[in-house]
Design a protein around this nucleic acid. Sequence first.
DNA 1: CGGGATCCCTTGCGATACTG
DNA 2: CAGTATCGCAAGGGATCCCG
Lengths: 134, 134
Amino acid sequence: MGVTASPGGGSLDGPGAGPIPPREILDKICGQGAIQIILAASDGPIRFTEMERTIEGISRRMLTLTLRNLERDGLLERRVYPTVPPKVEYQATPMALELREALITLTGWARRHSAGVAAARERYDARQAAATPT
Amino acid sequence: MGVTASPGGGSLDGPGAGPIPPREILDKICGQGAIQIILAASDGPIRFTEMERTIEGISRRMLTLTLRNLERDGLLERRVYPTVPPKVEYQATPMALELREALITLTGWARRHSAGVAAARERYDARQAAATPT
DNA sequence: CGGGATCCCTTGCGATACTG
DNA sequence: CAGTATCGCAAGGGATCCCG
């Protein structure tokens, strides 16, 4: 993987650091609420605080960091309006839009099977507890 | 392992631990090579070492852990043959198979845009470096 | 409004060694 | 073959404060 810089994901790679391993890309997209962020930015420009309210559960810090990462990877475009108060808009790039369908499928699946996963988990845990002597 | 329901989205077991937040489910699926594992187990039963060879780059530890997590969440079925030497097979459950298409899309996208992401990253980093005074 | 900087605990994860 | 156990560092990520 990258060079492991300081906390925040700022990987300082030297010039000519080859292609990114697909695994790393997927991890970035799926981790830390990036999916919701991309989807939120897929329906036109969206502001920072709008996102914060839309995504619900994400911390300010993580939102900022993930936005930066996605921008860096070319998945989001960030536009700053030097007004007072400041206004910043994010929107998905064409590259990111290609993911839209798949990401919707994924989130839909997760919502539909939320209970099923919880049930499976309880069954598994119960079985483990039963197999463990006191 | 097991409990540790700390900030971020740990797994709270215990009786009646409600439904799983979709976010957490997605993170589990996307992180630590779970995608490749699910896909590898989508074409019929596959053995532990086969997976280890197929996935390439995953550590023994992570493979084991992720397999356990996916089994616990009801995405993989694990079958043990008490032979000598032991034989263990994993295969995707129907629930996990529903993800197949989307996961293939995702991995395909990641492969296609690997270079594009790398390029975007270099551009971003260059711009940052340019904006930073010495 | 939209962040950046710092603190600091928690978790992820590789490396290594041992086992049925 | 298919794991489990333990160690140890580094990354993850929340909380808090500050700033243009």
